[in-house]
Design a protein around this nucleic acid. Structure first.
Lengths: 190, 190
DNA sequence: CGCCGAGTTGAACTGAATCAAGAAACGTGG
DNA sequence: CCACGTTTCTTGATTCAGTTCAACTCGGCG
């Protein structure tokens, strides 16, 4: 779903409003494996994934990359805490394949918020949806077997599950890469 | 920290503004074990815990209560998704000891939002803080041992850790009650 | 006094991690 | 377009943290 469709689905805008809103965003094409934000930097933009996908991740004590979240086509992507509060980001933001993004700075977003109160509603919708999704993942991680967690992943990110390196998914699901590999091999038997 | 102090810390308000804002809230005293919202109901209010503590929980497949979150003194408490989108709540909201709450309906909150743009900022602060906290818990649950998770709990909710039934904490941390009991008994040896 | 829920302790079991080694896929430069 | 090196994935063997099941203790309350 395109950016303007997404906006319109969440909140009703007029043609003119939509046009003006889109003008506050910048379109950007980025190529596979490009890093948008590094750990420790301020996340200066909020991104909308028009086409492609990305992920956020951090390095654990053993310098191993841990995927924190995936952002598929049609989703907003950012290091929320860093973006909204201008704090150093705890996470890397990386693009996983050639992608097209719409980005907006905090200042421009604030401008939109004050110009269009409806945008505030949109902001709340996006962030409460995120909160719900994180709680869902938490429940999955906390009480389900490795097998069930993988099924959760397939349901939540069907488009992503087969297109990114196994290790990214394993760390996202909180299991060893070997475990995920075994689960997948069981699947393909049937 | 009292409600007005909390408001003032997050966003600067004038005396008059603060007074008006407080007037949109209702104070309510509730007693231990009172249920504010049941699973399946709409969460009609956003609560601020002036004094006391509460938790959200759900029933798993075996009808066992799983604590989703604790809300200590000075925190906002609600079933966010249900409150903001008027959907049936996936969680129970329960008060864990005699408490004093300030509550506000969605309509009144919207009124505050349009009257005081600064309130929108406050809303974003509160919800991004929540998001950060949930991500932190997720990281703790995903990659830490039972022992470390308990330490995380002590750090995150020091006031709560010793005042609520063991089972509530165990389910919050995603471990068996027996495991938590053993961890605690090791602590008290030293 | 006796009951009941909450917490503790023990023993056996198990899902998944870890360690280790090899196979496959990928991309980069010659 | 092939060859080589690197990264990613698979498979096996072993180990262990934490679950489960079961029995027992403790403290509060009718």
């Amino acid at each position: 779903m395109s950016f303007s469709d997404t906006l319109n689905e969440l909140v009703q805008f007029s043609e003119a409003e939509l046009h003006d809103i889109l003008n506050h965003f910048t379109m950007k094409s980025v190529s596979k494996n490009e890093i948008l934000v590094k750990q420790g930097e301020i996340c200066k933009y909020l991104y909308f994934v028009e086409q492609g996908m990305g992920r956020s991740y951090y390095l654990n004590d053993n310098q191993k990359e841990i995927t924190q979240w995936f952002f598929g086509t049609g989703k907003f992507m950012s290091s929320a805490d860093s973006f909204f509060q201008k704090k150093p980001s705890l996470y890397y933001l990386e693009v996983l394949e050639d992608s097209v993004l719409f980005l907006i700075s905090k200042e421009n977003l604030e401008r939109l918020f004050s110009k269009y109160p409806k945008m505030e509603k949109l902001g709340r919708l996006v962030i409460t949806e995120m909160l719900t999704n994180v709680f869902n993942k938490l429940n999955a991680i906390q009480f389900q077997t490795a097998r069930e967690r993988y099924d959760y992943m397939l349901a939540e990110f069907p488009d992503i599950a087969y297109q990114v390196p196994l290790g990214h998914i394993a760390s996202y699901l909180g299991m060893a890469q070997e475990t995920l590999s075994r689960i997948r091999s069981q699947d393909s038997i049937n």
